[in-house]
Design a protein around this nucleic acid. Structure first.
Lengths: 136, 136
DNA sequence: GCAAAGCTTCCATCCAGTGGAGGGTTCTTG
DNA sequence: CAAGAACCCTCCACTGGATGGAAGCTTTGC
């Protein structure tokens, strides 16, 4: 059966959910949840009803993960991914929203930096609270 | 009524929840929720049962806000604040946990930075998708 | 052929808040 | 002092984003 259709257009067998989970580090449950939420479309089901994903889905999951970690809501992500799928950006609204997102990332970065400072100051202040039967 | 006890030990009237909300930028509901969760102790109630907060509580809220934004869970925060209240750090466990936290902050910062790059690349790639009736 | 592992759906639970009803308190102002 | 606005209280329900578990197919490997 010519193990892979030889050198035709690379039909790609489709990754099952567990494999996707392994590759992205996301729990299976979460991936399923994203599918249900309309964030991710498996593009195919096996005869038995198994979700089959492709490389594109993996790329989307990377985006999803990154933006979710910035608290972008799921409906918002749906919108963003739709536009991404559409390919060309015909509306500047999206550009604006991305620019805004970048601004908020910068803000977050500086927040984190100052938090780090604060923590390290805290740590220092403790370093020399010595004397009281410290670690002997 | 000597508006503030003149120059004695500064009894401080105690801030009511609305004022705390105004100063910290947190919703009243959330502050109440933190109290219920044992994160924040008003230290006093007015005769009418109003929660009365002090400066220390404000400081705690700052910490809470910062750490919550790093997804530190509420039970964990309870632990942390307890130790903080206890004053001196007698266990190095906490130091370790803070050091770990700092590590994760660093990680997060670099994640964000690379996300920013990715976004700006995305934005660039769209900038010059021009041609199709762009913005005229 | 059969067990283990993997997948499905569906429903319950969790966490961190948020919203609203129903009711008491404090401030302002006439 | 009365009225009204603004504030506060508790309690209970609900949300969003997952996560856990049961019950039941399917695929894999010996």
């Amino acid at each position: 059966m010519a193990r892979q259709g030889s050198l035709s257009t690379k039909p790609s067998p489709g990754l099952r959910i567990g494999e996707v989970a392994r590759r992205t580090g996301l729990p299976v449950k979460t991936i399923r949840f994203y599918c249900d939420a309309g964030l991710l479309q498996p593009k195919e089901r096996s005869a038995a009803g198994y979700r089959l994903f492709d490389e594109e889905n993996l790329a989307e999951l990377t985006i999803i993960r990154a933006l979710r970690s910035m608290d972008v809501s799921i409906p918002e992500l749906v919108r963003i991914l739709e536009v991404r799928r559409a390919g060309v950006c015909n509306c500047s609204v999206l550009k604006d929203s991305i620019a805004a997102k970048m601004k908020s990332i910068n803000l977050r970065i500086s927040e984190l930096a100052s938090m780090k400072d604060e923590l390290s100051r805290l740590l220092d202040s403790w370093q020399d609270c010595g004397g009281l039967k410290a670690d002997r």
